[in-house]
Simulated assay, not measured.
Amino acid sequence: MEAANNSKKEERFTHPVRTRVTLSVYQRLEKLIEKGDCHSIGEVSRKILSNEQIKVFHVDASLNSVMEELALVRKELKAIGVNINQITKAFHSSRNESSKSFYALKVAERYETVGKKVDVLLEIVSQLAEKWLQRS
């Protein structure tokens, strides 16, 4: 336990380093903050100086429309699910058989809609898989 505490003490940033850089270097460091996993110029500088990896994230703008479509399908499926729950509640509180049959038909219609949405999702996933596999 004591060895772990000693190593943590050694890892603390106790020695300040100050420097000046050109505008272009500073802008490159800022880009690393925007696109990477660092939150400050100091953190970027420390990782560079200590030869640590900086994870840079790339956003594929071509996927924006696909993600919007997926979000829309998700929203629609959630609404259908809420509607099915409401119909189910009405079914269980209904006392006569004709009402129960009506609610059962309504639920069947909603599940048919779910099937169509799942088909849309499968098509989107298929397109994504083709795009992804082309990169490999």
Rank of each mutant, 00 (worst) to 15 (best):
residue 1 M to A: 12
residue 2 E to S: 12
residue 2 E to Y: 12
residue 2 E to P: 06
residue 4 A to R: 15
residue 6 N to I: 12
residue 6 N to P: 05
residue 7 S to D: 10
residue 7 S to V: 04
residue 7 S to G: 00
residue 8 K to D: 08
residue 11 E to M: 13
residue 11 E to N: 14
residue 12 R to D: 13
residue 13 F to E: 12
residue 13 F to K: 15
residue 14 T to K: 15
residue 15 H to D: 10
residue 15 H to K: 15
residue 16 P to N: 12
residue 17 V to G: 05
residue 19 T to N: 04
residue 19 T to Q: 07
residue 20 R to K: 15
residue 20 R to S: 15
residue 21 V to Q: 07
residue 24 S to I: 06
residue 25 V to H: 11
residue 26 Y to W: 05
residue 27 Q to F: 12
residue 27 Q to L: 14
residue 29 L to M: 11
residue 29 L to G: 00
residue 30 E to V: 08
residue 30 E to F: 11
residue 30 E to L: 11
residue 30 E to P: 01
residue 30 E to K: 06
residue 31 K to E: 15
residue 34 E to T: 11
residue 34 E to I: 14
residue 34 E to P: 05
residue 35 K to R: 10
residue 36 G to M: 06
residue 36 G to T: 02
residue 36 G to F: 09
residue 38 C to K: 06
residue 38 C to H: 03
residue 38 C to A: 14
residue 39 H to L: 13
residue 40 S to W: 07
residue 40 S to P: 08
residue 41 I to H: 13
residue 43 E to L: 07
residue 48 I to R: 04
residue 49 L to T: 09
residue 50 S to K: 15
residue 51 N to W: 02
residue 51 N to I: 06
residue 52 E to D: 14
residue 52 E to H: 07
residue 52 E to R: 12
residue 55 K to N: 14
residue 55 K to F: 03
residue 56 V to Q: 09
residue 56 V to K: 02
residue 57 F to C: 05
residue 59 V to N: 11
residue 60 D to H: 10
residue 60 D to R: 06
residue 64 N to Q: 14
residue 64 N to H: 12
residue 64 N to A: 14
residue 65 S to E: 15
residue 65 S to H: 12
residue 65 S to V: 04
residue 66 V to R: 00
residue 67 M to T: 09
residue 68 E to V: 06
residue 68 E to D: 15
residue 69 E to Y: 06
residue 71 A to Y: 04
residue 72 L to G: 05
residue 73 V to G: 00
residue 73 V to Q: 01
residue 75 K to N: 11
residue 75 K to L: 09
residue 77 L to G: 05
residue 78 K to Q: 11
residue 79 A to C: 03
residue 79 A to M: 07
residue 80 I to Y: 02
residue 80 I to W: 01
residue 81 G to S: 10
residue 82 V to R: 13
residue 83 N to A: 07
residue 87 I to K: 05
residue 89 K to W: 00
residue 90 A to P: 02
residue 90 A to E: 05
residue 90 A to C: 07
residue 90 A to V: 05
residue 90 A to G: 03
residue 91 F to A: 01
residue 91 F to T: 01
residue 93 S to M: 08
residue 95 R to F: 06
residue 95 R to A: 13
residue 96 N to D: 09
residue 97 E to P: 06
residue 100 K to L: 02
residue 101 S to W: 03
residue 102 F to W: 04
residue 102 F to S: 10
residue 104 A to R: 10
residue 104 A to H: 10
residue 104 A to M: 05
residue 106 K to I: 08
residue 107 V to Q: 07
residue 109 E to D: 15
residue 110 R to T: 04
residue 110 R to D: 06
residue 115 G to Q: 06
residue 115 G to T: 12
residue 115 G to K: 11
residue 116 K to N: 08
residue 116 K to Y: 06
residue 116 K to L: 08
residue 118 V to W: 00
residue 118 V to F: 02
residue 119 D to W: 00
residue 119 D to P: 01
residue 119 D to T: 09
residue 120 V to L: 00
residue 120 V to T: 10
residue 121 L to R: 01
residue 122 L to K: 07
residue 122 L to M: 10
residue 123 E to V: 02
residue 123 E to L: 09
residue 123 E to I: 02
residue 125 V to C: 13
residue 125 V to D: 05
residue 128 L to C: 14
residue 128 L to V: 13
residue 129 A to C: 08
residue 131 K to D: 01
residue 133 L to H: 09
residue 135 R to I: 09
